[in-house]
């Protein structure tokens, strides 16, 4: 069975079975070969995303104007505001999607990239990758909320204006999605068989 596993490889894009030596899939022509250069690509995207994590959390993401009062909110202060207003479930969702999951994604992707050749905890690593792959885009929630609020509330005396952290946050999420996409999951445990 092990020899069969080494002989064939599943195309991650269309599911077709190819010989391990194939570089491109016989059915969809997309790349199928296990590629160690994907680690460099994934790490590069990850660091790019990590750079944007700091301005995304330090700078304000929203500016709210109500009549003659104007105040700005960072992601963290927005979560506290939701919590203090009693919107506990929403505060938890925003906290998970905007603070905890991005941070976990960085840690997990970094760990996966540096430990890809290690044969320990293979099952856990595969599950961690699945978690990153599925939860990754959900960090866009905050950017979309800013978009909806900015597009809806732009009156003379009441307005919500997106601030620069929204752009940094969006860039951070895009780079981490690209990092997760670049990482070749099949490399986990590839040298342990």
């Amino acid at each position: 069975m092990e020899s069969l596993r080494r002989k064939y490889v599943r195309c991650p894009h269309c599911g077709f079975t190819n010989f391990s030596k194939n570089i491109y899939c016989n059915r969809c022509n997309l790349k199928v070969k296990r590629d160690y250069s994907s680690i460099n690509k994934s790490l590069a995207f990850l660091f790019a995303g990590f750079i944007f994590y700091f301005p995304a959390n330090i700078y304000p993401i929203l500016q709210s104007n109500k009549f003659f009062a104007s105040y700005t909110n960072t992601i963290i202060s927005g979560i506290f505001e939701l919590w203090n207003d009693g919107d506990y479930p929403i505060a938890v969702i925003v906290f998970l999607a905007s603070v905890l999951i991005p941070l976990l994604k960085f840690l997990i992707l970094f760990y996966l990239n540096i430990s890809v050749k290690s044969c320990k905890y293979l099952k856990i690593k595969r599950r961690l990758y699945k978690f990153v792959e599925i939860s990754g885009p959900w960090s866009l929630l905050d950017v979309f909320v800013v978009f909806v609020l900015g597009a809806l509330i732009h009156f003379r005396y009441v307005s919500i204006i997106p601030q620069k952290a929204a752009l940094y946050f969006l860039l951070m999420v895009i780079f981490t999605i690209l990092s997760a996409m670049s990482f070749d999951e099949r490399l986990i445990g590839a040298e342990c068989e």
Binding site: H13, C28, L30, L82, L140, V145, V148, L149
Partner: peptide, 29 residues
């Protein structure tokens, strides 16, 4: 089919829907 395979990962309709609901809760008061 190749185009669908590549593009489907960049459609975020579901997340945008949740974002609309979150925005509504923020505006509700």
């Amino acid at each position: 089919l190749i185009l669908i395979t590549v593009l489907k990962d960049w459609c975020f309709l579901d997340i945008f829907f949740i974002a609309i609901l979150v925005s509504l809760i923020k505006m509700f008061s």
